[in-house]
Design a protein around this nucleic acid. Structure first.
Lengths: 237, 237
DNA sequence: AAGTGGTCTAGACCACTGC
DNA sequence: CAGTGGTCTAGACCACTTT
């Protein structure tokens, strides 16, 4: 319990959510302005603003100057998923992590790759193929292209000791990127690497990251059948 | 362009990000306190607080009372993906949406389902199987269990006109949920429904949502090969 | 043109927590 | 228990849009 007189922004947020849940305010409805709500709750306008802004950030409310604040028409359900270091992912399951650098090459990349990364044809890229293992069983296969122009230091990194995945997370900070998930049948080559039958349903993650000015890396990670990516949804307060 | 003298919280946020990117402040480092930064930037402490709080929300900074503010050790890359209404997902690709309610039943659910939803064995649930189509071709198959105790109104909803997916998004505000992605081989039954070969790699999404007090629905959606879930990563300002 | 949200300030007190 | 972030206030001005 808390002192009955407290007027915190979380209280206001909770009350607004209650009114939305109980349909007092329905999707699309215009809700009272900040000044009016400040009067109703007996607090400063900034406190109302704090509460409503938080809900707008979550996608529950739509706020526009002059037009006022409305309950969002499509209550956006958002899931936030974090991009893990594969080593931690394995260790979190209580397994022993190991990785094996299957191939490494450095030279002009294929047009398909340079196009995908938005680079000029013939750009030299570092190409790494890594098998990640959990308790010496294949955990996932990583096929990665790196733009050395963006992270020159990677050429000197001990990539047989620390995986490119982990090195980049630690050294190539704060980039923007795209990510895509899909299901895919295992090619014969991938099937052999992952010790699964050809055609087995693989879960693949494609990720491209870049700095403000240039692409850093493009990677495709394939997981054998059974792998799940999980997260939690937040739909309200 | 803006007046050179402006000291906005976004300016401060950008400057902090710059110092992190350029390694002036490294992961784990303690950065100056709010009062000190307010002096440095010549603004109110609340403005600093606003900038740092935003970065903490993004996972770039770790803030704790008394302990101060540190650059996050694990540069948490977070992707926020929105959960769309399937109809909109289809229409966004310029296709005509249609859905077909393949089966509907109402009665005691199997122990496997009640256990997954955290309900007592034998609880009565509504079970719906829906095929969603884009331009009359199978788009995805939805297998859903709904707890009528949480949303009694669904028993009267015209589910052949509006899909349960969409009805729930509009009518059931939830406070919490889980979501999981995986790749899976098509069973003979699923293969026939989706018009794909048995064993084809399906992309499946499992989702469970609940109110604060009780589970609402548990759903499993299967997409034929080729479907991709995409989103963007934000690593900084 | 007017009214809404967005931001900033200066000051105050509170809550948590590491020393 | 002292110092940090967290919050609240009262007031002001600004920026954006819809009317």
């Amino acid at each position: 319990m808390k002192p009955a007189s407290a007027t915190s922004w979380t209280d206001i947020q909770a009350e607004v959510m209650r009114r939305i849940r109980t349909r007092v305010w329905q999707p699309g409805d215009l809700i009272p302005g900040e000044i009016e709500m400040a009067r109703e709750f007996g607090c400063a306008r900034a406190t109302i603003s704090r509460a409503l802004r938080a809900l707008a950030d979550e996608g529950v409310l739509d706020r526009r100057r002059r037009a006022g604040t409305r309950v969002a028409l499509t209550p956006v359900r958002r899931a936030t998923l974090s991009i893990p270091v594969i080593r931690r992912e394995v260790e979190a399951r209580g397994a022993l992590y190991r990785h094996s650098l299957l191939s490494r090459s450095d030279g002009p990349a294929s047009p398909a790759i340079t196009a995908r990364m938005g680079l000029a044809a013939g750009t030299r890229l570092l190409h790494l193929q890594t098998l990640h293992l959990a308790d010496d069983r294949p955990w996932c296969f990583e096929d990665r292209w790196i733009n050395p122009a963006a992270v020159p230091a990677i050429l000197d990194a001990p990539l047989s000791q620390i995986s490119a995945n982990e090195w980049l997370v630690q050294n190539a900070f704060f980039s923007d990127g795209d990510i895509a998930f899909q299901a895919e049948a295992a090619s014969p080559a991938l099937a052999e690497i992952l010790s699964v039958p050809t055609g087995a349903p693989l879960f693949t993650i494609e990720r491209a990251t870049r700095t403000e000015t240039q692409p850093i890396t493009s990677v495709r990670i394939s997981y054998p059948p059974g792998h799940r990516v999980t997260t939690t949804l937040t739909g309200g307060a």
